[in-house]
């Protein structure tokens, strides 16, 4: 397969590319899904995170 001796490695080669293509398809299909409003927890978290960064 593709000049590669072992089928197992040929498969890994193809699967690596296919999984990256899968990521692209997933990204496109779910591009606008999962949006959430910023809630009070998020704001509190950001405030403390910024303080921590400042300290460092």
């Amino acid at each position: 397969m593709l000049g590669i001796e072992s089928t197992s490695i040929g498969l890994a080669y193809i699967l690596s590319i296919l999984s990256a293509i899968g990521c692209v398809i997933y990204g496109i299909c779910f591009w606008n899904k999962g949006a959430e409003e910023i809630n009070i927890d998020d704001k509190k978290w950001v405030k403390e995170e910024k303080e921590l960064e400042k300290e460092l």
């Binding site: 990256a20 990204g27 779910f30 591009w31 899904k33 999962g34 910023i38």
Partner: peptide
């Protein structure tokens, strides 16, 4: 990140980048 949507979108670029 702000929401799960940003994670979903990042999958697209992330997959290509790591490959």
């Amino acid at each position: 990140v702000r929401s799960k949507r940003e994670l979903n979108r990042a999958v697209l670029v992330g997959g290509i980048f790591v490959l």
